[in-house]
Amino acid sequence: MLVNFSLLIQAPLLNVQLMLDGLFIGAIFALAAYGLALVWGVMNVKNLAQGEFVIMGGYIAWYMGTLGIHPILALPVAAVLMFGFGWVLYVTIIRRVIARDLFTSLLATFGIALVIQQALNLAFGPAVQSAHSGFEIRSFFDGMVTVADIKFVSFGLCVLLAGAVVLFMKRSRMGQAIRATAQDARAAKVMGIDTERVYAFTYSLNCAICGAAGVLVSMIWVIQPFYGVPHSIRAFVIVTAAGLGNLPGVILAGLGLGLAEQYSGFVLGAQFQQATVVGLLVIVLIWRQYLLIKHRQVVR
């Protein structure tokens, strides 16, 4: 462990490689997590099928790739298709569990996740797939740092998408309605907002965001019908650490998670990547609790 640590000091360029890798993948994590934060914050639904939506988006990109269409072009297609899929899911299932207790929504979304996994397995088989952008791989500093162009592109797309969502939430009527519903659903209803439609839209928007993230995942990592779970876990970790309705927090936590995974992988060994992330989450939660207690004492 110490050897690895001293390696980072002796060869500072390794830090650049780790940071770039961490930030690029963290941006994608942040995207999927933002979708979860929306659904959780607005509808109070803890969506366990988050990772499966990501994988579905990945399969759309991969499938279009097999038809000879560049997987990047799958981004809008996946977003639109997944939006529609989200709407159908809302009308058929989510609508019925939204007012129920926590466990009903957890069980329902877990069920959705299982059905999606098996359906993908039946449709595309259990083989591991990956979409290929065919982009160049760039070397910097004498080959000490290398970055695939697709990572730059996907980072740019992440920023663009996140920006678009933020603008949408701030400026559009629907965005305002979503925020109003999140603050107080009953008051929003009294003011004439069709909360049912807001819920449907929020859930579908989440699906669309996940689908877009999935397209990027399929070009940077690999996909398989049963690989959604780690994506769900990451989204939950990020949202829990950032807090609901805190977009800058989600982005920071997403990027931080990417960095933490890379650094812990380098220093402690790849097997500790996820353990470190969960460990950090525990520390964040304890720190928050501590702040809360302090705050309460002041009020007293």
Binding site: V222, Q262, G269, Q271
Partner: peptide, 22 residues
């Protein structure tokens, strides 16, 4: 280097960066 892959097997770039250095 004697690393185990992370459970989801999605990312071993940190280990490979070590390979590059060592």
């Amino acid at each position: 280097i004697d690393d185990k892959m992370p459970t989801d097997l999605s990312d071993i770039s940190a280990t490979l960066t070590k390979v590059k250095a060592l």
